[in-house]
Design a binder for these strands. Structure first.
Length: 832
DNA sequence: ACCGCCGGGTGCC
DNA sequence: ACCGCCGGGTGCC
């Protein structure tokens, strides 16, 4: 099952293809009403934000109007809101708004506003109808062909948005001339920071209490002016505390963040129990706070919430243990079992949790994480929230914190909308409000206007720090790494293996070419993947793959009960209740267990015999049964059945597969040359790793294994163990490609074997980067094992093509952006 | 008068 | 709001 986890058919990129970018349909005139009830001020020709208010008790269609300071100005009049709300809620349109006339003094009751309507070309007819049906007249440009020609321009311009976005970070660093490198307290952060990390720390500390006005604000006649919308106010705008920390992978972001947490630790009263309502007033405390300043009055929040993907948790734990003085920081792992006591959690310096944990509490009405005012929230691998509609994104948006950080090694994935989610998380007003983002950034950008690009650069430039491994620091490359050599070792199959492979491949080819001819590949995607999977397995070892491919096709195989959670739970509870387990047909313990839709249990063989009769009934309850009512129960995961089977398979006196033999030979040769050299063996197949363990041990290697099924704690232990040196230390780590997620440091090794190729080169690259990163002192040798004349060679071909395709500057290292296989790729891989 | 008309109260959503 | 709308008071000429 795990092998399929990344193989979504379409990523979101394809669903919002270039042709479907919103364009300006025109605008409607409406009134902002209820101005007398709110304090939000507004100036002439000022842009305002429109925000849906579905929970408004007076009108579920309510749309409120806010200014750049997010202060409410009024509402859109009811009749217009009634038309727009459904279109907004269904994401059919997006809107921007501008107040054309200056409000009179004294304050009027209502104010006309132009609402610009944006829609995708495909939806425009529907939107026009809906607007007309609601009695709204849409005004488009005097030029009657405006809307369409505009759309055409947008489509023409769109393809190079990606290229132009490469420039977004051009500004980053340009404003940073004034960065002063900073040392963290040495008694707590035990590791000496590298020069670029000290610079980053200086920048982070500065960003948490910035002196300058936020971008696009200007001081003017004793007041303040937001230049982009002409908003004037006498209140100083709140500074944005935090930002985007987007250094490349491997530059030590986690260590730098830990240093920030230590360095900017507020001082507290004894146990900070009295509630602080000293929310920073605008204009107050403009002066830089001195570090570690004694201040008995401060009793604000002390806790930093770190949210990261599960795969990175262990890396945080490891880095804490490695770099931070024991006991200096109180850290709580809020994951699985977790304390719900808010006051208790507030006593920690760091609460470490995952996106899924935050998401699982979101909207429950009793979210512990949401009810705490955090000192800061750090989102690690923040690009995971790029979809603002996802539950994870919504959940982290709801977190309250004085300071907010989005941390990512892959900040831009070729679309400005990915940046929006980060801005939105940072609560970087007014851009965090969708209507402002759309009108101030997104739209000018799509129209190809320079202003959009300049604005985006300027705002990203102020709040982002990004360096790559190639960035220079005092004329030196930030990170000088020893060389990395990638070589390919071709494996010849034995005659026996070759026969099996060819047989399987021609079966698979005939199945898949039939789908391709019928144009139904995508509908049979899982079958296709199954075929490909099997072929890849045979290249590793025939034992990974049952011999008859036909029996593996969905039409032949019974569905797995894990696809039917309700039934699976019933089955599990039946086992727990100690129900009798024997097959009622043959009265013995079933070998392969099948559970029926009516929840009765049989041997697979017995119930299949029953099924051969006409109109077969369930032998127990007499209900009619068909094949689709049967679900195969896999051996229980928690038991060792699976591994025992594999061990049996390994010890069955079977000759080793060609690939295993080759790998062994390579390992033995390098061991003879250098007995203490450590190697990592990556495979996508957990079974392959298990299968390798015995032969390696038999050949005298000390072996460790790291795979996705291990707990966070166990993984951390394994990585630590692997890092140890000495005559009894382990020299080979068998690792699942995916388990080596971002952040894991495997620099103890200097040799990497990629046992099987992954069609997305970025995934392999990520795995290699775990070894070839800061801290690596030796030359790194990477050896990929490829079976000649097989699907593996074609996977290499595919990789090359993908690499050429994404030659651009961004997204290159983002495994997600090219995670999916398309029909053309399938053709290549199947030699069709 | 199951109306028209008058004039006071009232006012976002 | 110098409006519209609501609802109570009122009622031939």
């Amino acid at each position: 099952m795990d092998d399929f986890s990344d193989l979504e058919l379409f990523d979101d990129e394809s669903s919002q293809s270039q042709a479907s970018e919103p364009y300006l349909l025109g605008f409607v005139i409406a009134n902002i009403v209820g101005l007398r009830y709110y304090h939000g001020t507004i100036n002439r020709r000022e842009m305002v934000g429109l925000v849906r208010e579905p929970l408004n008790p007076h009108d579920p269609n309510a749309i409120k109007v806010i200014n750049v300071r997010a202060a409410q100005v009024g509402h859109i009049e009811r009749s217009v809101a009634a038309v727009l709300a459904p279109l907004l809620d269904s994401f059919t349109i997006s809107v921007g708004a501008i107040v054309p006339k200056p409000p009179n003094t004294p304050k009027p009751y209502r104010l006309p506003v132009q609402i610009h309507i944006f829609a995708r070309l495909a939806a425009s007819a529907f939107v026009l109808d809906a607007l007309a049906g609601g009695g709204l007249s849409l005004i488009s440009d005097p030029n009657p062909g405006f809307a369409l020609s505009e759309a055409a321009i947008v489509q023409e311009k769109k393809p190079d948005e990606a290229t132009r976005l490469d420039d977004v970070f051009a500004m980053v660093g340009k404003n940073d001339a004034g960065i002063v490198p900073l040392e963290p307290p040495k008694d707590i952060v035990l590791t000496e920071l590298l020069p670029h990390q000290k610079e980053a720390l200086g920048w982070l500390v500065d960003r948490e209490d910035p002196c300058n006005l936020p971008p696009f604000w200007e001081e003017k006649d004793g007041g303040f002016c937001f230049l982009l919308t002409n908003h004037q106010t006498s209140d100083r705008p709140e500074p944005l505390r935090g930002g985007i920390f987007a250094d490349d992978m491997g530059l030590g972001k986690t260590l730098t963040l830990l240093s920030l947490i230590v360095t900017n630790r507020p001082s507290y009263t004894a146990h900070g129990s009295k509630k602080s309502n000293s929310r920073k007033k605008p204009g107050g405390s403009r002066k830089k706070r001195k570090l570690n300043e004694e201040d008995d009055q401060v009793s604000g929040p002390r806790t930093t919430l770190v949210v990261c993907p599960k795969s990175v948790l262990s890396s945080w734990v490891t880095q804490l243990e490695e770099h931070i003085q024991v006991g200096a920081l109180k850290v709580y792992l809020y994951y699985q079992e977790r304390v719900k006591d808010i006051e208790e959690l507030k006593k920690y310096d760091i609460v470490l949790t995952t996106y899924n944990t935050v998401a699982s509490e979101y909207g429950s009405g009793a979210s512990t994480l949401e009810s705490i005012d955090w000192l800061r929230v750090v989102l690690d691998e923040a690009h995971v929230i790029k979809n603002t509609a996802s539950k994870q994104a919504k959940a982290v948006f709801a977190l309250n914190a004085e300071r907010r950080w989005a941390v990512t090694g892959t900040p831009i994935q070729n679309r400005s909308s990915d940046l929006y989610s980060l801005i939105s998380f940072l609560r970087f007003e007014p851009f965090a409000t969708k209507t402002y983002w759309t009108s101030l950034i997104q739209l000018p950008l799509h129209k190809g206007k320079e202003s959009g690009m300049l604005r985006l650069q300027s705002l990203i430039g102020t709040i982002t720090l990004r360096r790559t491994k190639d960035t220079c620091c005092d004329g030196q490359r930030l990170v000088a790494l020893p060389p990395k050599i990638v070589e390919t070792c071709f494996v010849e199959l034995s005659a026996e293996e070759r026969e099996c492979y060819d047989e399987m491949e021609s079966q698979a080819q005939s199945i898949i070419s039939r789908y391709i001819d019928a144009g139904t590949v995508l509908r049979h995607y899982s079958t296709v993947l199954y075929c490909i999977l099997r072929l890849r397995q045979i290249c590793n070892d025939v034992a990974l793959c049952p011999s008859d491919i036909a029996s593996l096709l969905p039409t032949g195989a019974l569905e797995d009960v894990s696809n039917n959670p309700e039934l699976r739970n019933r089955y599990l509870s039946m086992i727990e209740d100690g129900d009798d387990f024997d097959c009622p047909v043959c009265l013995s313990q079933p070998e392969k267990v099948v559970i029926t839709h009516c929840a009765h249990i049989f041997c697979e063989a017995c119930i299949l015999k029953v099924l051969k009769r006409t109109n077969p009934p369930c032998p127990i309850c007499r209900r009619q049964l068909s094949r689709s009512d049967l679900f195969l129960v896999p051996p229980t995961k928690t038991s060792n059945d699976n591994e025992d089977d594999l061990q049996k398979m390994v010890n069955f006196d079977r000759p080793l597969s060609s690939k295993v033999k080759t790998l062994l030979k390579l390992l033995i040769t390098s061991k003879e040359a250098n007995p203490s050299e450590k190697s990592i063996v990556f495979s996508q197949f957990r079974k392959m790793l298990i299968l390798l363990e015995e032969p390696l041990k038999a050949a005298g290697f000390r072996v460790l294994r790291l795979d996705g099924s291990m707990s966070v704690k166990k993984r951390t232990e394994v990585i630590q163990e692997f890092g140890k040196n000495g005559s009894h230390s382990s020299t080979v780590l068998l690792a699942a490609l995916k388990a080596a997620g971002a952040g894991i440091n495997l620099t103890a090794a200097s040799r990497v074997y990629l046992v099987d190729p992954w069609w997305n080169p970025a995934v392999e690259e990520q795995a290699m980067d775990r070894v070839h990163r800061i801290g690596q002192k030796q030359e790194v040798r990477i050896i990929r094992l490829i079976v000649k004349d097989s699907i593996e060679e074609r996977v290499l071909e595919l990789q090359e093509r993908k690499k050429r395709l994404v030659g651009g500057a961004f997204g290159r290292k983002d495994p997600k952006s090219q995670a999916n296989m398309r029909v053309e790729d399938i053709r290549t891989m199947m030699h069709l």
